[in-house]
Design a protein around this nucleic acid. Structure first.
Lengths: 223, 223, 223, 223
DNA sequence: CATGAATGAGACTTCATTCAT
DNA sequence: CATGAATGAAGTCTCATTCAT
């Protein structure tokens, strides 16, 4: 019997939940396995059906558990989606890290490295990135998440650009922030357009070279 | 504006449309007015609530008609949304047309003109563009529409770039298609990021200059 | 697709609802008939199954309409229950009105009249009164309603007692408020106990005489 | 308090209870302690959340045991509620016992004593009494329990009244049963109304005096 | 005895669309 | 053409109870 409206206060004032509802790690290994199975199943279902059309039952059936079990581990569709996406984003960030030796090398190579890494990581997870893009359009919390990701990349670019400008190796007339925004847009939306909207339209090398050229020449990079 | 008494003959003699279900223009002026009211109401409601949360009743109530009346003019929610968006896109395209004198002028100015025009038009309709972005993520037909829009812009850019390359005024090493894709991404996603995701983050001039600089320098434009 | 949590604001800020959700009278006679049918069905179902076990479908099936139709007329189970109970309570109040000629007669007869009227009305609607009693134990709004009903009766008793005390015809040592509370308790809970908890345990005359005697003698009524 | 080491022999030699499922006392002292903890926790949770909203997990968490453990001691939610309420009712009955000296004194004082005792006991346990009232409205067994309690009090009153009538000290015209019903209603529902529905509306003395006066005068008690 | 994960039935509600008037 | 009432499929989430360890 559902009487949510009659005692809503507890949702807010409730002390620590009795269980794993907030995504804590389960106590037993059996629990951990079940949680993993649910996450894997969710990735499959979200990618296949999109955020809106993904049903909890589809996830539980795919994971081979009863539908009630879902709620032992995640309080909602949004929660498991966030967990799935967080995984992916972590890998995206990890992939985007430029190794020390490259970082110490020429700026152009650094930019090319980062661009290629982003393209590859995006391409590997294009399915779920598309779904994040979708979900972000109507879910405020997921939109916030998506903005956070974008900001990370933009800030890194902005910082790098300021550095080059200080060294006199990039056009000092460019607004670092606005330029970083534009370049982030270029790369991320190029990925979205060519990997999500269309199916794999460009060769990796062609794309990397084009983007790198536009980027380095655009900021007036001098060797 | 056409008053009911102006052209009654036509209302009678016009060949009865097979059906209004596809959004044809209604035969009577009263009908035309109702259709307009619905379109206006839909623009308001879609922009306010998003595609998913927009309810047909909200549209009809806003338009001041009964909910049944809706289906006299549009066969579905998707249909009226398409009609609304088509209007907006038409204006976006119209705004993006570069006047003859500018077209005959220097390439840099042409690019700046087009960029500024796009930015302004986007900013004017940012609300609905955001909703189109949303709807395109889950509705195949609307996704197709969105791709069509993108292709138009990209193709124009590609054509322009080929032209410059042929004249020896842009880097011939760049793939015209891939470059056009990247530049289209840069401008369109810059708009999306700064006008939809964030609230108006940049001055128009700063944005136009930054984008134009990146663009022209990126393609290696020579005077 | 349910996404209640993602746009909860509208529940509060929404302007006038597009329809009859707040229980307004339907515009057409067909609508009025349907609303009546739902109310009648609800009375039957609530009485038969109790508030908790009453299902919306049972009501709609009993009324011979689809389940969606329910929500054209009532926003929730609570709403239709309130409507049903309001009807019953109105009749209870109406029955409790003491006609002018009796009111001008001897106090003892007045009290007996009111007691008998209450008993009869309660007995007639015992089923639904029991359900109100139930619902009031866990639904704040319905509890408020129940208290309102009780207050009405208690206040009437209090007023009458003050009057008698002023006339020197009732014990002036009694607190009118507290006494009215006790007497209201006696009569109302006698009805609850003998008509709801047990099945019809007393003859009407026996009950009326006992209650009237306790009441009149209790307050020290002098002719 | 029994420590585990104190009586191990008995723990072993005691005839194994067929089952603990019906709330029998556990064989080990550790078990007894767990059972107590569950009962205490249940009292807290039931009083705080009501019967319907009380969750077994909340009880076990409050008691500091796992949810499975619950079923080692009680077969169901209803069972532990019954156990909790039985405790309370026992104390209510205990409090309602009129000591010998008072019993031998004047009838008016006896009635006053019993009334005051009831009021105090009820007030002390008002929270759980309210929940019993709630649970009784939808659970047949708990309703039976509630009726049993009521009958005890009513029967005692009835017996007392018969006694007074036989002694010629109370109105012989009153039906003892029906009168007892009415007086029980008056006192018990006065408590419910003033202690549960409203918050502590009357001073104890005022309430006791009012109720006692109505009671004694109502039955025509002569010294 | 204790643990905590697993179960699964089932009611509510929404809203695009249809249809009788 | 307009009205507004009627439709009905379908997915989420709860929680008492069971069971494997």
């Amino acid at each position: 019997m559902t009487r949510a409206s009659e005692a809503p206060a507890r949702e807010v004032s409730a002390p620590a939940p009795a269980s794993l509802l907030d995504g804590d790690v389960p106590a037993t290994s059996r629990g951990r396995r079940t949680r993993e199975r649910l996450l894997d199943a969710a990735a499959v279902v979200f990618e296949r059906d999109g955020y809106l059309d993904a049903k909890i039952v589809d996830i539980t059936v795919t994971a081979g558990v009863s539908s009630g079990t879902f709620y032992t581990y995640f309080p909602s569709k949004e929660a498991i989606f966030t967990a799935v996406i967080t995984d992916v984003v972590d890998r995206l960030f990890a992939a985007a890290v430029v190794p020390a030796d490259v970082r110490r090398g020429p700026a152009a190579e650094r930019i090319e490295y980062a661009t290629r890494a982003y393209l590859r990581a995006y391409s590997e997870h294009a399915g779920l990135m598309a779904i994040l893009e979708q979900a972000a359009t109507f879910n405020p919390r997921l939109r916030e998440m998506r903005r956070g990701i974008r900001h990370s990349f933009r800030n890194r670019t902005e910082k790098g650009l300021r550095h080059l400008q200080e060294q006199g190796r990039a056009d000092p007339a460019l607004s670092p922030r606005c330029t970083a925004e534009a370049l982030t847009s270029m790369v991320s939306n190029f990925c979205y357009a060519s990997l999500v909207l269309e199916a794999d339209s460009y060769q990796e090398d062609e794309a990397v070279q084009t983007l790198t050229t536009l980027w380095t020449r655009g900021i007036g990079l001098s060797a």
